[in-house]
Write a protein that binds this DNA or RNA. Sequence first.
DNA 1: GCATACATCTGAACGGCGTCAAGATAATCT
DNA 2: AGATTATCTTGACGCCGTTCAGATGTATGC
Lengths: 205, 205
Amino acid sequence: MTKKPEEARAYHHGDLRRALILAAERILEKDGPNALSLRAVAREAGVSAAAPYHHFKDKDELLAAVAHQGFEMLAEAMAKAADQVEDPFARVNAIGVAYVCFARDNRALYHLMYDSNRRENFRAEPRKSGEGPGGVTVRALTRAAGGAEVDPLQLELRQVAGWCITHGLAEMEASREFADLKQRLGGDKAFYSAVLAQLAPPRKG
Amino acid sequence: MTKKPEEARAYHHGDLRRALILAAERILEKDGPNALSLRAVAREAGVSAAAPYHHFKDKDELLAAVAHQGFEMLAEAMAKAADQVEDPFARVNAIGVAYVCFARDNRALYHLMYDSNRRENFRAEPRKSGEGPGGVTVRALTRAAGGAEVDPLQLELRQVAGWCITHGLAEMEASREFADLKQRLGGDKAFYSAVLAQLAPPRKG
DNA sequence: GCATACATCTGAACGGCGTCAAGATAATCT
DNA sequence: AGATTATCTTGACGCCGTTCAGATGTATGC
């Protein structure tokens, strides 16, 4: 049997690398981050405990790959949300809401992404600044600032602040203290949107 | 030898509970979070690996105690910063800056605090909402809103947004992408302050 | 087509980890 | 003093991440 050129190279197992990443995501989703041991991943993929070391330098590198895939999913969700809104200002808000929704719906993965990012174990591709979640956000924010004459320093600060408030909300959205507020506003998304709207509009001049 | 009443109860070791918490902080500071194993903490405290189990149910409970102490330090730093500013609006900003500075100066501890909080392993005292970092912030924000007639929903949203942007900034402040901005603004604190100032002032009526 | 080189996987082992049970030791109570 | 209780040690168990020698399957050169 020869290799199928349309799939990644398959030797004994058949793209074990991808299988391991998927197994890790499955475990993360089903049993939580505490159960995410390298041995458990290998077990889930039906392979010996040492097998992953032919595809990843160590456990962190596998987790980084999982996180990398998570960032791609996140960027995609944000881009899709952005496309559904015309008004530049509302678009920024929609992107933020999509970001927080992703964190809500992929809690364990989101935390893994952030941890992996923090440890700077992103040994995968160097992130090209245009393609990740940051790129989507920055572009939308820049456009929302519009043709108006905006102090570039203010614009940059606003980008940072928007990033901070969104990430902060994503980290805390599950807090019980917000349950009441969510209900009063009529749903999670309305709550996210209202919180993100607290960012000041960019000052002109 | 009888016990010294001014110190906590000392049996064989002499308040091992506190010693373990301090040992954990020492390891965290010196060798980072990866080195923070229960056995290493016991070793650092000069005690057998099983000894901690007479003071903490498991490792998470020890970490929760460390985190708890961290929250007290943080609340103190915030309260001190608040006392040094008169203007209610500037005070809110100063509190946020103090919060981010704490995260910057106690990075490993801050992350531990947040992790421990996330896992809801706060088996220590239930947090009385008035005393923690949240209480300090909320009081200052409420006062900054002033006697003006403010929509209470808007005020609450603003509290949440303030909390989010501050925590988000604390998590990301070490990012290299901000180095340039920090320099242009003339220091870390000026940068934190400028970012936090991006929050919209509370709308009246 | 076959031997050789190479990529891939297994099995066993090492030290470290969190945790527990049994026993030793020291402080407290009566 | 003797009994009780709190504290700590020793030793063990199973799981973990990682390494290494060797087995096995795949591709390549002749």
